[in-house]
Design a protein around this nucleic acid. Structure first.
Length: 570
RNA sequence: GCCGCCGUAGCUCAGCGGGUAGAGCGCCGGCCUUGUAAGCCGGUGGUCGCGGGUUCAAAUCCCGCCGGCGGCUCCA
């Protein structure tokens, strides 16, 4: 992530607005916002056509021209214009006689804008009736900084999981299948399986028993759960022989039925079920985005049925495991955000229950020493929640992990357990997902590692390459031994030069290349190349296997096998 | 769903002021006694997203649909 100077952005945003107003009088500035990704200035289109890319270039030049002349920026105060209120950007400035806007918290710099780039012109519809033209861009004090930023953008494109997913042969989308529906290729499926293996271990520790439920339920169930009314617009419903069924958008109702299948005692609680449940949500067309936003996805879902006094411990245990999973992928703090969302205006349950649940969530985060932000009133109507967000290569945030406390569904389904005095009590439910969705998480880690995944999760871990024809037999032997040790290994016997085979293996993101020649065959050794041209020659095969086993068992985020061998050459 | 942009070989792209398609990589074949990030030669490969219209003639112009991208709204 390239850091952008917020004050330079604010100044550039003002200049962009007056440049647009001057160059294209049909556009009237109405608001502007700024964040770590740049500025976004909104305009009302009074007449005429949509601005073009050439217009964007004109605006960029005009900004710099205005900057060269005498510039007077005067703060005028806050506007009470209704539209501006809606946009929440209502500080008014007069810039050389033109009105321009900024969000009240932004402070324009005194430093001059040396470079500005309009990245795109798009629509902004704060409400369905209001349609605005939005100029998004970045600005810097110097041209050099802009060039650095553009280089970073190019690099971000190379990290794009949609590009890498194709290049690395992981998954594909097809017009005939439908938008937002992923087809996983063998290598992509390996990544899914490894992620699920990891989460199965976590579930084991947390005491969640894996279950399996169907993909389609009678609408009767969705009416009880409330999805039929509250979630219907995203559901796929089908009428079959006069009866209506719905494809599941969530796994909870199925798990609730397991809970309900017999009378539960206070002694049985907590009861916890997990499922890699593939759900379908008919997101609107324009909302789909690679693997990060799809219509069919697999949640590493889990539901705990608890006594009230068990809620806090469960939250803590889950949160601890979430942090563990984050650490495995080496996520940096700046790429992760934890939110605590509290009671909204409309809610069910008692205030006491909410206080307890919110307190439990809060204590859990604080006791684990994680920085977090509170989002007042952003909780679900049925309970407060913790969400963990991750950043993609372009700096956009996506929600992954989630822990939600739920008072509503136990009530709707009439869930009970028998208390020690024989009375009937209502359990509390926790919905949780560690990865969130397997596909979204996969996309995040592909971008995080630029496709060069840690060895334990790499679809192909080792490629064995004989460097001469006379070494094929030993290469085959090495291949077999590695395979028998459980590694995902390929043997490259193609009639190609060694250089080309190495290049190809690197291009496929393979962490280790094992080179075999007569020298290695004679000594029963291997020559190992890691990423970044690190190489160790003539390692006894057994030693390499030991080092590799360690790296994989630890789920090391970086390559350590060569260091473990301790003979690394430059 | 809304606004804008885009859709040519398996992939990346050229051609688009109308005259029935090109390159590189890949793939296939051949050559090379193949030691560390592209060896050489040859070949294969496209109802130019789909449908309609304008025209003597459409990849190229117009309309509709499908799909993708950038945003908005929404979410794991």
């Amino acid at each position: 992530m390239v850091m952008l100077d917020q004050e330079v952005l604010a100044r550039a945003a003002l200049l962009t607005q007056i440049a647009v107003a001057r160059e294209m009088p049909r556009l009237e500035p109405v608001g502007c916002s700024i964040d770590d990704r740049g500025f976004r200035c909104d305009f009302k289109l009074k007449s005429g056509g949509w601005p073009s890319e050439d217009d964007a270039l004109k605006v960029e030049r005009a900004v710099l021209r205005i900057e060269e002349g005498n510039l007077k920026i005067v703060y005028e105060g806050l506007s009470d214009d209704e539209l501006l209120q809606l946009l929440e950007h209502n500080a008014v400035y007069m810039v050389n006689g033109f009105r321009a806007y900024l969000e009240p918290s932004a402070k324009p710099s005194d430093k001059k804008v040396g470079a500005v780039k309009i990245l795109n012109i798009s629509a902004h519809n704060p409400t369905p009736e209001i349609r605005l033209v939005r100029f998004s861009g970045v600005a810097f004090s110097t041209q050099k900084e802009l060039e650095e930023y553009l280089n970073w953008l190019e690099e971000a494109e190379r990290r794009d999981h949609r590009v890498l997913g194709q290049k690395l042969d992981l998954f594909s989308f097809h017009e005939e299948v439908g938008p937002g529906l992923v087809i996983y290729h063998p290598k992509g499926q390996v990544i899914r399986e490894e992620l699920m293996k990891l989460i199965r271990e976590v579930n084991e520790r947390l005491g969640y028993s894996e279950v399996y439920t169907p993909h389609v339920f009678r609408s009767t169930l969705w009416k009880i759960s409330g999805h039929y009314t509250l979630y219907r617009d995203k559901m796929v419903l089908a009428n079959i022989e006069g009866e209506e069924y719905g494809i599941k958008p969530m796994n909870c109702p199925g798990h609730i039925l397991i809970y309900k299948s017999k009378t539960r005692s206070y002694r049985d609680l907590p009861i916890k079920f997990s499922e890699f449940g593939t759900v379908y949500r008919w997101e609107k067309r324009g909302e789909l985005y690679g693997l990060l936003r799809v219509r069919g996805f697999t949640q590493d879902d889990g539901h705990a049925f608890l006594r009230e006094d068990q809620v806090k411990n469960e939250i803590k245990a889950i949160l601890r495991e979430i942090l563990y999973v984050l650490s495995i992928f080496g996520f940096r703090e700046e790429d992760v955000k934890i939110y605590l969302s509290t009671r909204p205006d409309e809610y069910i349950g008692t205030e006491e229950m909410w206080a307890k649940a919110t307190d439990a969530l809060k204590t859990a985060i604080e006791e684990l020493g994680m920085p977090y932000q509170v989002r007042e009133g952003e909780g679900a109507f049925y309970g407060p929640k913790i969400d963990v967000h991750f950043r993609d290569s372009l700096g956009r945030w996506w929600q992954c992990s989630t822990i939600q406390v739920d008072f509503a569904l136990p009530e709707r389904f009439g869930l009970e357990y028998v208390e020690n005095d024989g009375s009937r009590k209502r359990p509390v439910m926790i919905h949780r997902a560690i990865l969130g969705s397997v596909e979204r998480f996969m996309a995040i880690i592909i971008e995080e590692f630029e496709g060069k995944l840690p060895t334990w999760i790499s679809p192909v871990q080792v490629v064995v390459i004989p460097v001469r024809h006379d070494s094929v037999d030993y290469a085959y032997h090495v291949f077999e031994v590695l395979k028998n040790h459980g590694f995902r290994v390929n043997l490259d016997l193609s009639e190609e030069t060694t250089s080309k085979k190495i290049r190809r293996a690197y291009g496929e993101g393979v962490p280790y290349i094992v080179l075999i020649g007569p020298k290695e065959a004679n000594e029963e050794t291997v020559t190992v190349r890691g990423r970044g041209n690190k190489q160790v020659k003539s390692v006894p095969l057994s030693e390499f296997i030991k080092a590799l086993e360690k790296e994989v068992r630890r789920r090391s985020p970086s390559q350590v096998a060569l260091d473990l061998i301790k003979k690394t050459e430059a």
